[in-house]
């Protein structure tokens, strides 16, 4: 066996997102050697991607059952608005947070019921709930930004115990819990089984409807948590604050797919996808690249990484 023969398979395994991430890190380190690898910048980067990580992990669960959730951004906006309105109305912080989380769970149940039992496509069901939630957020806020949130609520998104942002700690916890659920539990195996082949899963005795519904509940809860963190971080709630999270969370899962040999959604792959998007955004900002060009580059990277993954999958 030659050294080259060992390196080539290793490089092949590194294709897609991991290779892309390494290339981006190398590129930005060379072009901005004093700023990009600076611990302060890396800490900022982690804080920037924390909220997206939570939504993307939740989206991974839905995509594991071969569905997707277009309403995660609107759910995040809605939960932030609910919490802010209740806090401004004088509710205790814990109660407001619980109510916002409950709203996320209810949204997940409705989405799951529409998809799993009413047999609507995930696209139609979550598009409908996204639209309705966007209207609900606007109605609740009268289109305005809610501010004046209490200090104890702001701790959730702005405190830094031991210098580590709380949002990062929460994102790590959510990532770990989602990874454990998907990879180490019977429920996780059921999610993957339904995503792999729903019919076969039914024959294997899995309650496909319940399994899909639970995936949407996880998604709703994750999105609600992200919305709470966003509102706390921004010290305000805006009816569209969480909207950009929808497309980027789906993009992160797709980029993450390029890292997995099995080509099925995984938490590790998704977090890699989130990091790729975060590094790209951060690096291009540091280089002061035209923002319109940034959007083009982000789109290209998604296409190239997913395309490479496809080619690798087709290889005998």
């Amino acid at each position: 066996m030659t050294a080259g023969a060992g390196v080539r398979p290793a490089l092949r395994r590194l294709s897609g997102a991991p290779l892309g991430l390494l290339a981006l890190i190398a590129l930005f380190t060379i072009l901005r050697p004093t700023v990009f690898p600076d611990p302060g910048n890396l800490s900022n980067l982690l804080e920037h991607i924390a909220v997206l990580t939570i939504v993307a992990c939740a989206q991974t669960v839905v995509m594991a059952v071969a569905d997707f959730d277009l309403s995660v951004g609107a759910t995040a906006s809605f939960s932030g608005v609910i919490a802010a309105q209740l806090l401004v109305a004088g509710w205790p912080t814990v109660a407001a947070i619980a109510a916002a989380m409950a709203a996320g769970v209810v949204i997940g149940v409705v989405n799951g019921w529409l998809v799993a039992y009413l047999k609507l496509s995930a696209f139609v069901a979550t598009l409908a709930s996204m639209t309705a939630l966007a209207g609900g957020s606007l109605l609740l806020t009268d289109g305005s930004t809610i501010f004046g949130l209490p200090d104890d609520f702001l701790l959730l998104g702005q405190s830094r115990p031991l210098g580590i942002p709380t949002v990062v700690l929460i994102a790590i916890t959510v990532g770990a819990v989602t990874w454990f659920l998907l990879s180490r539990t019977a429920q996780g195996r059921r999610w993957h089984a339904v995503g792999g082949n729903a019919e076969a899963a039914t024959y294997a005795g899995i309650d496909v409807g319940r399994t899909r519904l639970l995936a949407f509940v996880v998604s709703g809860a994750g999105a609600a948590l992200a919305g709470l963190l966003l509102s706390s971080r921004l010290a305000s709630a805006h009816p569209t604050a969480g909207d950009p999270l929808m497309l980027t969370s789906i993009a992160a899962v797709f980029i993450g797919l390029t890292a997995a040999q099995a080509a099925r959604p995984s938490v590790a792959g998704t977090i890699l996808g989130v990091v790729v998007l975060g590094v790209l955004d951060n690096g291009l900002n540091l280089l002061d690249v035209n923002p319109y060009v940034q959007q083009i580059l982000t789109g290209l990277i998604i296409v190239v990484s997913v395309g490479l993954s496809r080619r690798r999958g087709e290889r005998p």
């Binding site: 700023v35 900022n44 921004l234 805006h238 569209t240 604050a241 909207d243 950009p244």
Partner: peptide, 25 residues
Amino acid sequence: VTVKHVPVPGPVEGARKLTTDLLAV
């Protein structure tokens, strides 16, 4: 030193990220 495009929706979070990166450089 720079002219940045603020995304809509999400202008508060967008500007916050842009500013954090801007302060670094």
